[in-house]
């Protein structure tokens, strides 16, 4: 479990190093995700040299455990927002309407495009 957590941090660290070292326009954790994906794709080939935790399901368990509590990790930033609601009061209603309608429209449009293209290329779920 600790090794898996360490591995996630290591991927993020390498991602941050690459992002800053090469001035990539991507956030470090996103590059870290790509690195972990590569590791997962090649882990069978390199099984003899990799720690057992990478292949025995522990990495999966740790990652999925973390993702099932993704909501928790947004709380500190969310609390910060409550303290800065003064920034939106002057146009509060207009901004709320814009956010609500725009978010609904964006999701409906995105789903419609997804389904339309999936049907167009004759793809089944």
């Amino acid at each position: 479990m600790i090794l898996s957590l360490g591995l996630l941090l290591l991927c993020q660290l390498l991602g941050e190093a690459l992002a800053h070292g090469l001035s990539l326009p991507l956030p470090g954790p996103v590059i870290g995700m790509a690195l972990l994906l590569v590791l997962l794709l090649v882990r069978e080939k390199f099984a003899p040299v990799l720690p057992r935790e990478v292949g025995d399901g522990t990495l999966e368990k740790t990652s999925n455990g973390l993702l099932s509590h993704l909501s928790l990790m947004f709380i500190p930033a969310g609390v910060g927002v409550v303290q800065r609601l003064d920034l939106v009061v002057s146009h509060g209603v207009a901004l709320f309407v814009a956010l609500l309608v725009s978010t609904a429209l964006a999701m409906l449009a995105s789903v419609a495009a997804f389904r339309f293209i999936a049907r167009l290329i004759g793809e089944r779920e």
Partner: peptide, 16 residues
């Protein structure tokens, strides 16, 4: 807790 957003983003590779 906020810090864990980074490793959680990396963890997205697993379901992917």
């Amino acid at each position: 807790v906020h810090f864990m957003l980074g490793p959680a983003t990396v963890a997205l590779a697993v379901p992917l």
